[in-house]
């Protein structure tokens, strides 16, 4: 299959835990950054492109900034094979999805990526957060409406302070020096939960983290991307953060003997004169 696409995109199946995970890699038009972005969806989404293509738009926006971006269907969702995950946030439910993320990260590494930003929404944000320290080369996190509860979608708790591992995982990320973007929508209950959590231990952690952790509190609802204004706001907030924080993700050192400059010509530069 061939033909014109607005953005160059490559479709793949990646084997993980006995399933074929379906993914779409959006490539920058020019030479890619060494950092790739892995996009993970929420539990309620039918496929990784998201409601109104919000995740496809995120991937394409990131590619315009030079970052290859990969969106992946969970097992049992979208075009992937296998069984759908439980929409639960306990470690036993999350770790298999982290294993899937590691398989995708390995594929991206084989394709030349040296660093990974993991960007997830809701369930995906908690998978992303758990990837820190478990998946090699994770250099940053974008967490959209991360629940501060380890909830079970069948029994959503009343709003309240953090329960479960959220603060602990955030501390791990901060201790590892990872830049983190937290995005909430003010009308969402998860934003209320976050604000309550901020009054306690989480607030202390965020103050300690300084500018390593950025909190974007948007005016629109964001949980499950229920409206286009919120979708657009998330895309722009994430793109702005990625552009600003890219130098902090760290780049792989030059191969030995090449410190004085890259002898390998960038063909595209040459062609562009």
């Amino acid at each position: 299959m061939s033909g014109a696409q607005s953005w160059p995109e490559e479709v793949v199946f990646i084997r993980s835990r006995g399933s074929d995970l379906f993914g779409v890699l959006t490539q920058p038009a020019g030479e890619p950054e060494e950092t790739a972005v892995l996009l993970l969806s929420g539990a309620a989404e039918a496929a990784s492109f998201g409601r109104n293509q919000v995740r496809a738009r995120l991937a394409r926006r990131f590619a315009d900034l030079g970052f290859p971006a990969m969106r992946v269907d969970y097992p049992g969702a979208g075009e992937s094979t296998g069984r759908a995950p439980e929409a639960r946030l306990d470690e036993g439910s999350i770790l298999p999805l982290v294993e899937d993320a590691a398989a995708v990260a390995g594929w991206l590494r084989e394709r030349g990526s040296r660093r990974l930003v993991v960007a997830g929404s809701c369930l995906g944000s908690r998978v992303a957060l758990t990837c820190a320290g478990r998946v090699p080369d994770v250099g940053g996190l974008v967490l959209v409406t991360p629940p501060v509860h380890d909830y079970d979608h069948r029994r959503m708790p009343e709003s309240g302070g953090p329960q479960g591992r959220f603060v602990e995982l955030m501390r791990d990320a901060v201790d590892a020096g990872l830049p983190v973007l937290l995005v909430y929508g003010r009308p969402d209950r998860f934003a209320t939960d976050f604000e309550l959590a901020r009054r306690g231990e989480l607030g202390d952690l965020l103050r300690t983290a300084g500018d390593l952790v950025t909190v974007a509190m948007l005016d629109h609802a964001v949980y499950d991307f229920p409206n286009t204004a919120g979708q657009d706001a998330v895309v722009e907030a994430a793109a702005a953060w990625l552009r600003t924080h890219a130098p902090r993700f760290g780049r792989s050192p030059c191969p030995s003997g090449q410190e004085g400059g890259d002898p390998l010509l960038r063909l595209q530069d040459l062609l562009d004169g």
Binding site: M1, S2, G3, A4, Q5, P8, E9, E10, V11, V12, F13, D20, F22, L25, Q27, P28, A29, G30, P32, E79, T81, R111
Partner: peptide, 27 residues
């Protein structure tokens, strides 16, 4: 990579049925 993206389809073969699933872009 940006130039060849979409020129090839991803393919998987179901072990049980032998069905070939080919995903990609047509334009």
């Amino acid at each position: 990579r940006p130039l060849v993206a979409g020129l090839t389809a991803a393919e998987r073969v179901d072990a049980a049925s032998g069905l070939t699933e080919r995903a990609g872009f047509a334009g």
